[in-house]
Nucleic acid binder design. Structure first.
Length: 561
RNA sequence: GCGCCAGUAGCUCAGCUGGACAGAGCAACGGCCUUCUAAGCCGUCGGUCGGGGGUUCGAGUCCUCCCUGGCGCGCCA
């Protein structure tokens, strides 16, 4: 529809040049937008305003020339206006819109999908929590944003790989092992023998109990049986990592978040990929030694200071395996990689990209992409819940899902742009009333299903694509609802393109509102069977789109509530 | 001090990558259930888009300088 209009505008412009009504000969790109105000028609173009300067005429004068050249459009539009500073507004014939209802029924679950990705490979890494404790609410936001991003990219035709990276090596894992060992030995936080940067959370006690009891843990391809010996720090470490990884996997499964590939930091060491990348960086000439450490001159690539790669004690800082990991992603053929992570780690971006540039292996500048999410604060009873990671007091994702439910949790995480801070109001999320937008959108879906049940009782068959005389739809609100449905594919494409999953949540609320309003004003099942069937076609198109959008958000579309 | 992200209605936030009088939800107030689910609908109230300059036919949106809040600035991740 948009393309057809663009075509006609270009033809009209050329006609103006041919007749000499317009003289500049410039051909700007024809932009068509959907106006927010329905009085401004279905599509609007600013073409006349873009030409005005070159033509040295008032925009409205240019617009008049174009409108004359456009003619009647052979019935495509009902009305053409020149408005405001020089917009040309197209009001299309209703039938042109109603045809989309047949498209929706024909495509069903695939309505909204497109082929923008053209089957190209993209990898999305998200959550990537350290296996040192349970997933907290911040990880939950990362999981919701990352997962919906994945679903969006898949819907947009990308060949998607979902990946989780475990930082199961390094200093913090050492702290974890020491903390579990301390608990095994009955040492409490506060005791002078308690490790300096130990994890104090209650869950450490559970790990210690499991270890002493000789428990067996399966997590991914890791299978660990506890040695039970409190002196064997290495065995404790292996057990603790597997134990906490299993916990995280369970929580993510409960959140309906799954991954295709799990990558372990420790494997980068054992496979020699870390050493290899260090050798390459040294060979690149971007490193130097100072104070007993090996440094990477990241300032060569826009960082504000150089960074230590290998510490004086011989171990590597975290970003070295990160660089090795991302080189590995590149070598696996992912020309597009998106990392979803918390904004508190945004300083890694410059470092990882600098390391990859230093390797000089043809990785483009600015690769990979990042989507950052800002902090989440928790509100309960109107009070902010204080979070202390060291003391281990924080809201876990597991608690959240159990308390407010998976759907509400996911929706709340996606109700805001990811780079805006989020206040998670637990009381509101739990509420089953009209203040809670989660049920508002699901209720709209359930209502259509309810109409369908009534139709079945009355022996009215649900219409399929192309079976209905669209003349049964005559009301302004039916046209408005249809136009909203027609916009859905653009919403999906835009959200995938801009990596902004929250757009779906807003669209969903808008569509639900339009449907609820229609439902309250008009009956679907009326005496006139032609009208009933046309309306059934319309409301079931709403049902399909609601279901598709809820699916992209990882939420259920209930048939009754 | 430097970097990143924010500052839009009383509150929480959108604003489609510059367009036509700035929107929604909640809160407040007033209405609507003998008809497909009232977890719903309709109406009223409410904003100098943090502030100053600039670019543009046109700026909440772009540039610049200030102010405020959050995060980061480690041989932690």
């Amino acid at each position: 529809m948009r393309e057809a209009l663009q075509q006609r505008l270009e033809t009209a412009l050329q006609a103006c040049y041919a007749t000499g009504v317009l003289t500049s000969g410039v051909a700007p790109e024809v932009q068509l937008e959907v106006p927010g105000n329905p009085e401004h028609g279905d599509f609007a173009t600013n073409l006349a305003m873009m030409l005005a300067r070159a033509e040295r005429k008032a925009p409205r004068q240019v617009a008049e020339a174009l409108v004359t050249a456009l003619g009647d459009g052979e019935g495509m539009w009902r009305k053409l206006d020149i408005a405001g500073p020089g917009f040309i507004n197209f009001t299309l014939a209703p039938l042109a819109w109603y045809r989309v209802l047949n498209d929706i029924h024909r495509l069903d679950g695939r309505f909204g999908c497109c082929d923008a990705g053209a089957g190209r490979k993209v990898q999305v890494e998200f959550v990537s929590a350290n296996p040192t404790g349970p997933l907290h609410i911040g990880h939950g936001r990362g999981a919701a944003v990352g997962d919906t991003l994945c679903r969006l990219l898949a819907a947009a035709g990308w060949n998607l790989t979902r990946e989780f990276y475990y930082n199961d090596a390094g200093a913090q894992i050492g702290n974890l092992a020491l903390s579990v060992q301390a608990r095994c030995l009955g040492i409490e936080p506060g005791d002078e023998r308690w490790p300096a940067d130990g994890y104090q959370g209650e869950y450490i006690k559970d790990v210690a109990r499991g270890y002493l009891a000789g428990e067996k843990v399966d997590a991914g391809d890791q299978h660990v049986t506890a040695a039970g010996d409190p002196q064997d720090l290495d065995a404790i470490r292996r057990f603790a990592v597997a134990y906490l990884r299993r916990e995280q996997d369970q929580d993510l499964a409960a959140f309906d978040v799954r991954f295709d590939v799990y990558s372990l930091e420790s494997a980068l060491y054992t496979d020699g990929k870390v050493d290899a990348v260090v050798r390459q960086l040294i060979a690149s000439g971007h490193t130097f030694e100072q104070d007993g450490a090996l440094w990477l001159r990241t300032t060569d690539f826009g960082d504000d200071k150089d960074r230590v790669m290998r510490k004086a004690d011989g171990s590597y800082t975290y970003f070295v395996p990160d660089v090795a990991y991302h080189l590995d992603k590149w070598q696996r053929g992912f020309q597009r990689v998106i990392n979803e992570q918390g904004a508190d780690h945004h300083s890694t971006i410059t470092r990882v990209r600098a390391g990859l540039q230093a390797l000089n292996v043809g990785i483009p500048q600015g690769w990979p992409d990042y989507v950052l999410h800002q902090m989440v604060t928790v509100l309960r009873g109107g009070e902010e819940v204080k979070i202390s990671k060291r003391a281990g007091s924080y809201v876990t994702l597991r608690d959240l899902i159990e308390e407010v439910g998976r759907d509400a949790t996911r929706f709340f995480f996606l109700m805001r742009r990811s780079d805006a801070q989020l206040v998670f109001d637990i009381d509101l999320a739990k509420q089953q009333g009209n203040e809670n937008p989660v049920y508002y959108v699901q209720y709209a879906h359930a209502r259509v299903c309810s109409i369908n049940r009534n139709a079945a009782e009355q022996g009215v068959a649900l219409p399929a694509a192309g079976e209905v005389d669209l003349d049964g739809l005559t009301l302004d609100e039916e046209l408005a609802l249809t136009r909203l449905l027609a916009r859905y594919p653009e919403v999906v494409a835009g959200a995938a393109e801009q990596l902004e999953p929250h757009r779906l949540a807003f669209y969903l609320q808008e569509l639900a509102a339009a449907f609820h309003s229609y439902y309250n004003r008009q009956r679907v099942l009326v005496d006139d069977p032609a009208v009933s069937r046309a309306r059934l076609l319309l409301v079931n198109a709403v049902r399909i789109v609601l279901g598709n959008a809820l699916g992209l958000l990882g939420m259920a579309a209930p048939e009754r509530m």
